Simulated assay, not measured.
Amino acid sequence: MKDNASFNILPRSFYSLPTLQLAKELLGCLLINETQEGVTSGYIVETEAYMGPEDRAAHSFNNRRTKRTEIMYAEAGRVYTYVMHTHCLVNVVSGPPGKPEAILLRAIEPRDGVDLMMNRRPKTGKDLTNGPGKMTKAMGITMGEYGGFFHKGPLYIAAGYQPESISTGPRIGIGNSGEARHYPYRFWIEGNGYVSR
């Protein structure tokens, strides 16, 4: 990263935490995207964990292995992007190699490059980045990031701040996943206005 001095990029070892713990530790971290248009960043305020072959809501449920999900079987700390409807969503691959788990980044509180974010997504206030598709569009995150490492960029995760209080609840938008829709695998910074709901 050209401006690396101003960001404390988290090392690859950070991602070796168990998935549910990592999903909480990511809260307050800084997501940074370096593009030709400029650098944007924001604090991660909401995450959702997907626990692999046993989790009916996970793309890798039942060890489903496709071209899309292949990166989930790689080492932790890789970038898993996929398109849902028209939105590109971004996940952190977690779990050891061969155990396909991932954490969806659902929302950020913008920090750097807010004007650039608003050019890409002409919204104001929390509506700019308070959802997984809104956030990626504002930050210019695309399928081109698929398979990269968050410690190598151009999409990075850096140290941010320690949230005072974290809330836990069921995930959103997975109604057809049986009992898995009730699992308390969504985490968010309590009271933050950029949380999706």
Rank of each mutant, 00 (worst) to 15 (best):
V79F: 06
A180W: 12
L17M: 14
R111G: 04
G113E: 00
S6M: 14
A74E: 12
S13W: 11
F150C: 06
I103S: 08
Y50I: 03
W188E: 05
M118D: 02
R181H: 02
P18V: 13
M118G: 11
G77T: 07
I44K: 03
V92D: 02
R68D: 03
S41E: 02
N63D: 04
N176G: 06
K24C: 02
G144N: 09
G95C: 10
M84R: 13
R120E: 01
G178I: 01
R56Y: 07
I157H: 10
T19W: 12
R68N: 05
S60W: 07
M117T: 07
H151K: 13
L17V: 10
L10M: 11
P163R: 08
F150R: 07
G147N: 07
G191C: 12
G131W: 12
Y50E: 02
M84N: 13
G191Y: 01
L27C: 13
T81L: 05
G38P: 08
S16Y: 13
E75Y: 13
P100F: 03
M135N: 08
V45E: 05
D127S: 15
G98M: 07
G113L: 05
Y185S: 01
Y82N: 05
D127A: 14
A49N: 08
L116H: 04
E37P: 06
A102P: 01
G77I: 14
Y43E: 02
A76Q: 04
D127N: 14
G193L: 10
L89D: 08
N91F: 04
C88E: 01
H87R: 12
L10R: 14
G178A: 03
S13H: 12
F149D: 14
F150P: 03
K126V: 11
K67L: 08
G173A: 15
M51T: 04
R64W: 00
L89W: 09
D55Y: 09
L116M: 11
I44V: 13
A57Y: 14
G113S: 02
E109H: 11
M135D: 02
M139T: 00
E48S: 01
T136A: 01
A23N: 10
P11I: 04
L116W: 05
G175T: 10
E164P: 13
R111C: 06
C29G: 09
V90S: 04
L27K: 09
T40G: 00
S13V: 15
V39M: 04
N62I: 05
G38H: 00
T19F: 10
V90K: 11
Y156W: 11
S196T: 08
A57H: 15
Y50K: 03
M72E: 01
G125A: 07
R121N: 09
R186V: 00
P96A: 13
V79G: 09
N130S: 15
A49E: 00
A5Y: 03
K152L: 06
V45H: 09
R197F: 09
A74C: 11
D3M: 15
E190Y: 13
C29S: 15
S16T: 14
G28F: 05
S177V: 02
R106M: 03
S165D: 11
N176P: 03
P18M: 06
G38Q: 06
R111T: 04
R56F: 01
K99S: 13
H87P: 08
N33M: 02
P11E: 10
P132W: 09
G147S: 05
R171K: 11
M143R: 11
N192P: 06
Q36H: 07
A58C: 09
T142V: 02
